[in-house]
Design a protein around this nucleic acid. Sequence first.
DNA 1: TCTGGGGTCCTAGGACCC
DNA 2: TCTGGGGTCCTAGGACCC
Length: 425
Amino acid sequence: MYGLVDCNNFYASCERVFNPSLNGVPIVVLSNNDGCVIARSNEAKLLGIPMGEPAFKMKELIDSNQVVVFSSNYTLYGDMSNRVMKTLSTFVPSMEIYSIDEAFLHLNGFEHLDLDVFGRKIVRITTKNTGIPVSMGIASTKTLAKMASKYAKKYKGYQGVCVIDTEEKRIKALQKFDINDVWGVGRSYAKLMNDHGIHTAYDLTQRTKSWVRKNMTVVGERMWNELQGIACIEMDSTFAVKKQICTSRSFGTKLTEFHDIFEAVSNHAASCATKLRCQKSCAAGMLVFIMTNPFAEYDPQYVNSKHLFLSVPTNNTPEIIQYAKSLLQDIYKPGYAYKKAGVIITEIIPNSPLQADLFDTIDRGKQDKLLKVIDGLNGGLGSNMVRIASQGYSKKWKLKNEKQSKRYTTKLSEIIEVKADDLDV
DNA sequence: TCTGGGGTCCTAGGACCC
DNA sequence: TCTGGGGTCCTAGGACCC
């Protein structure tokens, strides 16, 4: 059996933990740059504020209902996530952290327990220990567990836990479940389902396996099996090394000058390099992209990217910034109002053993020592305390986050970052 | 006129997730 | 005025191998 534990309205709940006066008050959390609504408290959902909606379109609704608005605070959410996961890990020998606010628990070996009771204990203690309300779905496959967790959230009577452990319950759950809410059904499959008169999860299970295979490939076939109670999606508790690493941001304002955009790209490249070192990897290929604002219909549009294979794979910050600079130089064209830039590491390999270059001019041993010291300093004092000059301090590219809450869980670095700004002067 | 069989690897594009 | 960011997996088709 699989259990899926899912935090309720996670980002909104994180904000509430440190500001209990917000209980019962509608809250929304905005994406980077204060762009779109990415989390809503139940009260905000009831007001009809949709997920993913641009904030400016919701302004009237937000103002007239005194909705409290937050810019996203990922440092805080990441930290709260760690607390939740740590608590969950005390209940089972094996779990898989599926996203910032969800984890699958492996329940094999717990058959002797009343899973309903066990689930409620997990929900109760996790909420008590962290302040974050959670729900749990339990079933014989991951897809059914996801479904169960939605029921647990939707109906108060479940007390936070829904268990699908009999054929009767499975069929009933499938029949009442909108096909659009099934794990793995996105926009395009939703249309396909609609076109074929499939409205519930049950309807899909009534199609033949070959129909599903033909119209939805092997992905759909797995989904079909999972809904029937045949597990196809295994637990994966191993730490997964990323196959692709990307850092990109929209700018707070439009930028036209090369050096302003390069400052942003430098920071994105540095962040990619740090992420590479964190997972003990090197970049063997990378890509830089820039784009104008696609929503500004009447502005001239320009989107471009360029890819590069590295002769010696590296995770060295200055080196990666240099490559990024030359790529940016190749694609930058003056005269456009740029809105977004990003760096993507496309080919990732382990940092050891590494194929060296006979004619390499860089003393990599020495560089590695330097980077270790920099990572150590930044880890203790706050990220980017020590930085490459081209990363700059102009902050012209910095995004809007006018309504960010405090860094309640990571105060030390906050204090030191203030000092860093003083030093900058 | 007639032109094999069995593979691997890579990429772009499309689908999905949170 | 204002529209996020970071990932994974699958498939078809092309290039190549023997």
